[in-house]
């Protein structure tokens, strides 16, 4: 049944390019996580403390991000905005799509985190004369951060996996680059097999790094 000849040499030759693309994958995933964290935090706070149009905007964002396919979201930033004459670069499409998605999922994680820190912590901080800003940044958010640390790590892994959708909107991150080489050489299986290994290594690297960092960060 194995009358197929595997050709690994072209893959090995383009390995440096693939690894570089892997770095791009890591970059775009990290960047969209950073944007997602900031926006997700804002969305969570708006949903917890506000009423009216801002609340509905934040809620729509969260529900749309969570209840439609990530690929749909990418297409939206791709063709969808094209309808309004707005044409983003492939990189921008992936960054916007991933950030939109991450922000929606993280907002819910943050909301859970804020709810898990007792109100009395805020009262205690304010009773010491801390301003509301000081109480949030020094007392509440560090505790929320610990609660959402693992979900945050998982979301970063998701962002890496999701960034592979870049290949469907013409972005040459790891998957896009792989497809580019594969379609030139017709060694589709070999190329994608190596890429699968690279993704696996990236994911394991993130999980290991996160675990090490947690040991340093959380001593309590």
């Amino acid at each position: 049944m194995f009358d197929y000849n595997f050709h690994w040499r072209p893959v090995l030759k383009s390995l440096p390019d693939l690894l570089e693309a892997g770095l791009l994958t890591l970059q775009v995933a990290t960047l969209s996580m950073v944007v997602g964290i900031v926006i997700g935090l804002v969305l969570a706070l708006v949903r917890m403390h506000m009423r009216g149009p801002l609340y509905w905007l934040a809620t729509s964002w969260v529900e749309l991000a969570r209840n439609t396919p990530a690929l749909f979201q990418l297409f939206f930033f791709g063709f969808g905005l094209g309808a309004f004459g707005l044409h983003l670069s492939p990189f921008a499409i992936v960054l916007c799509g991933l950030s939109f998605n991450c922000a929606g999922y993280l907002a819910e994680n943050f909301r859970g985190g804020f709810q898990a820190v007792p109100d009395t912590q805020l009262r205690a901080a304010r009773s010491l004369g801390m301003s509301s800003w000081q109480a949030y940044t020094r007392i509440i958010i560090p505790q929320v951060f610990r609660i959402v640390y693992h979900p945050l790590t998982n979301q970063l892994v998701w962002a890496v996996l999701m960034s592979s959708l870049g290949m469907l909107v013409g972005f040459r991150e790891l998957s896009g680059e792989t497809q580019f080489f594969a379609s030139r050489t017709f060694r589709i299986f070999e190329y994608f097999a190596v890429t699968a290994v690279i993704y696996y290594v990236i994911v394991k690297f993130i999980l290991a790094a996160s675990r090490l960092l947690a040991m340093r960060l959380f001593r309590y």
Partner: peptide, 22 residues
Amino acid sequence: IFRSVPLIIQLVLFYNFAPIVG
């Protein structure tokens, strides 16, 4: 492995692997 490799890669890989094993 199935949780650590993008689904899209799994799909392409399997689709191209199936004919190899007949």
